[in-house]
Design a protein around this nucleic acid. Sequence first.
RNA 1: CGGGACGUGGCGCAGCUUGGUAGCGCGCUUGGCUGGGGGCCAAGAGGUCGCAAGUUCGAAUCUUGUCGUCCCGACCA
Length: 412
Amino acid sequence: MKQSQLFVPTLKEAPKDAEVKSHKLMARAGLIKQTAAGIYTYLPLGLRVIKNIEAIIREEHDQRGCSELLMPALQPRDLWEESGRWGQYGPELMRLKDRKERDFCLGPTHEEVITAVVRDYIQSYKKLPLALYQIQTKFRDEMRPRFGLMRGREFIMKDLYTFSESRADLDAWYQTMKIAYTTIFNRCGLETKIVSSDTGQIGGDAADEFMVMSEVGEDTITYCDQCDYAANQEFSGLSEGDPCPNCEGTIQVAKGIEVGNIFKLGTKYSESMNAYFTDRSGHRQPVIMGCYGLGISRTLMAAVEQHSTDDSLLWPKAITPFHVHVIPVKMTPENEDAILSLYNNLSRTYTVLLDDRDERVGVKFKDADLIGLPYRVVLGKDFKDGLVEFTDRHTAETRLVAVTDLPDLLLL
RNA sequence: CGGGACGUGGCGCAGCUUGGUAGCGCGCUUGGCUGGGGGCCAAGAGGUCGCAAGUUCGAAUCUUGUCGUCCCGACCA
């Protein structure tokens, strides 16, 4: 893309309602803009990252036999009466009426809808297992939205629901998705710890959370410095320096951002909403369910929080909005053709952002630092001789290289 | 929902204590000079001071109400 055509409203100063680093940077780098408390617009650059995260999620789900669908955000009251949650959920549930005064809610989660979608279909064990997911906007009327995308009232989430004929099959899905989640977060440049958790509002009998360690996290996590033991401090009761309950290691304490959670739902929804099947021995059984949430907008925020300084971003390569930032120090009628040719050439293999704006180079560099693409190619005084300045920002190494060598240097 | 704070050109802020009709930086427009890390000079444009009521000859400033936003906590995941 040519930067002159892309809507990237960078800011010299952060808006005053941004407090945490990631929020300030996302606003300054032109990734998001606040529309109301806990409600954000994803600007083109932010949307590109969201789409990259989504692509990784789709890959890791589809290859494990999950099917994508899309359910409605607007859900009728009667489904929530079936599960009993219309009365249970409380003011976090965004409720509204249609013109005929019928009650609806904006979905904070989709157990009700998915169960209603599949229950007619899964009459026999032969139709199981089934794993269905969607990527969708969720609504929760949080008492207190905070920290930009950390806790929004409207946010993007991937939610997967599995339907199994047996506990063993549910357990297998659960393990599969644990691995899938770890893989997804790693690919997004995030290291996660898995902590077992309360089942809360969703209901069910086992749950794990995927936490990214970060000082702005809302949970306090105790974890071992040697093995993979990790737990929410409320439950574990451990403190910094305690011995690990599982090995010889020592307990550390840190804040964590919850970017994913997975639940073994069991039969809570299948029983209340009549999703039964006939098993191999001819008995009618409630389907055994699991649900697996992954906060996409929150993952974006966590990635920014981790991969940034106070005034610059540095995107993990897998989710960066563009791979390469091409910055001509000066565009003139004489060098324009050569610049466009380089840009078009690189664009065949990589996503390229060409800063063709009529700005001073200082402005371009400052914006480039903010935007944080992993590779930078500066077209400077040696460009006329076929040489460019190439920087891999992850290593901070800059080299003068031949234009013709560029594509090979960018092996991602 | 309890506690705290803030709403003043697009953005960040000052002015409010002690009422007299709005200012600074950035950005924007035009011209010139510049040209490798958010340039300089000059001339401009842009604001019902969140909204409403009240006090007053007069309100950005005082009073009350209301709406919005942020932070701490509780809540939730």
